[in-house]
Design a protein around this nucleic acid. Structure first.
Lengths: 277, 277
DNA sequence: ATCGAAAATTGGGATATGCAACATACTTCA
DNA sequence: TGAAGTATGTTGCATATCCCAATTTTCGAT
């Protein structure tokens, strides 16, 4: 009679299976909810979640857990938490460089992601080509935007596709501008750390009339293995602070246009009061 | 000096937009997290969430909120809530049809999504080609899987790419099997409601040695505009119940293999105790 | 059947969150 | 300019959750 009512005591692995199942139904479950569902203590559920969270199967939250965002990865999420304000400003500012009707190529990365969000938010009528699944999804939410995704080998690390197929595909389009991120910017030029992305970025550069690099000042002075462009190949540098030192002189030596998205120029993100009327 | 540090005080509507944007990137946000991000009190964020929750824009949770649809879309999310158990069983069963080393094509859809999850969970060593961003992301989490994504026009409705580019790309591969979902299955064959997806599915069929349709019994007897395959072109039908009535006779008349993923055959998801040793 | 390890429960103190009432700042409009 | 209305901040307290450690139960193996 007891066990007739109680569904049965689930084992550890079964319980975890169930937790994952629940998370597919709703994006968020509560510890207490699951505890009563399984007929175990909240402590037990908590420990389950603890381990599953470490295994990356879900994201813990106070009072519960949420599904591990498909395509969102720990490192990417952590990076997102850094320098948010800068990237936010940078992205908005870069988005203001795009007019209705333009065609653009957008790279994968946290900064270009911000850019895509701003574009979507502004409901800018653009045609975008990207190799980043996240950029596609975010920008695709805007009714005004047309998004084309490049083919290729899926890289979970950045939630993007890479490879020769990707480059070949991109080579088939000629766009008004490309918006690229990068891991480093120094006298040596724009450099990238991840193999495979360098080729993509170079291809995008080649196919674009205007070349825009979105690089925040924390990347200044850093040089990585793969060179994307030399200093004089940078069309427009969108950043959050003027480059100084050797990089500054090197870059001012070229015809590179430097746009600083400080608190000033782009008023969307600043609290500058409108002239006291 | 004050405003030099503070990015700026966002207005109410802007803040809420931001919350929604955040929720697109991760399925769950914390009240405290947003409060510090926006530079407002937790109470303010709480109040925002309160109203947004009532408006159905998000789901509240203790300590935060989760997306009403995490990167997914309302209609898709609603569908996700129906017949989950069936789809789960179906997906698992279908995954058991795949062996290490095989190459497969996977369609976009809620059922094939389950299938992809099971494949990823099983760490099956496969090479998959898909037009669904979600399938790519989910399957890409498995270290064992190689995922290739097809190019094309991004369709937000299903988070997938479609178009002639997509079909052309798919035509370049020959795989061991394809796993397709569908909106309807009747005497008229397998049919689909969304324009554009029919071409994709037919292309995948053409390029595959084995043809597998994942269709749960709720689709039986339904006919939609676009035909994917006639009854005798279905290689394998993976479903959760034997087709009856006219559909049943029509399909048994062919060489179609029918696999029913009832509670029996696939024990992973059931709590059937292993034979009392 | 017994033993040992793993899993689960229990209890309690610390912390986080929620809620409601009130105070303050900002905006709008006359 | 001033008053009304809205948005936000603050405070205090109830509640929920977390974390830790000790204890008990369960399960598998010999």
């Amino acid at each position: 009679m007891i066990e007739a009512l109680e569904p049965r005591r689930l084992k550890k692995v079964e319980r975890r299976e169930q937790i994952l199942l629940e998370l597919r139904l709703k994006p968020h479950v509560r510890v207490s909810e699951l505890a009563s569902l399984f007929g175990v203590t909240t402590e037990t559920v908590r420990r389950d979640m603890e381990e599953m969270s470490e295994a990356g199967l879900l994201n813990r939250a106070h009072g519960g857990a949420s599904a591990a965002a498909p395509g969102i990865h720990r490192d990417m999420d952590e990076r997102r938490l850094e320098r948010v304000a800068e990237r936010e400003r940078l992205g908005r500012f870069a988005a203001s460089l795009v007019s209705d009707g333009e065609t653009v190529m957008i790279d994968a990365g946290t900064t270009t992601m911000e850019f895509a969000r701003s574009l979507a938010f502004a409901e800018r009528r653009v045609t975008a080509i990207t190799n980043s699944l996240q950029v596609a999804m975010v920008l695709g939410q805007s009714q005004a935007a047309q998004v084309r995704l490049a083919p290729g080998k899926y890289m979970q690390q950045e939630a993007a596709v890479i490879g020769t197929e990707t480059c070949d595909y991109l080579s088939g389009f000629n766009v008004d501008a490309c918006f690229l991120g990068a891991a480093g910017l120094s006298e040596a030029g724009v450099t990238e750390a991840v193999e495979g992305f360098d080729a993509i970025k170079r291809t995008m550069l080649r196919q674009s009339a205007a070349r825009r690099f979105l690089i925040d000042s924390s990347k200044f002075g850093r040089t990585y293995l793969f060179r994307i462009a030399t200093c004089d190949e940078i069309g427009t540098l969108v950043t959050d602070a003027l480059p100084e030192g050797p990089l500054g002189t090197a870059i001012r030596d070229t015809s590179t246009e430097i746009l600083v998205a400080s608190a000033g120029p782009v008023c969307v993100g600043t609290k500058r009061a409108p002239a006291p009327r």
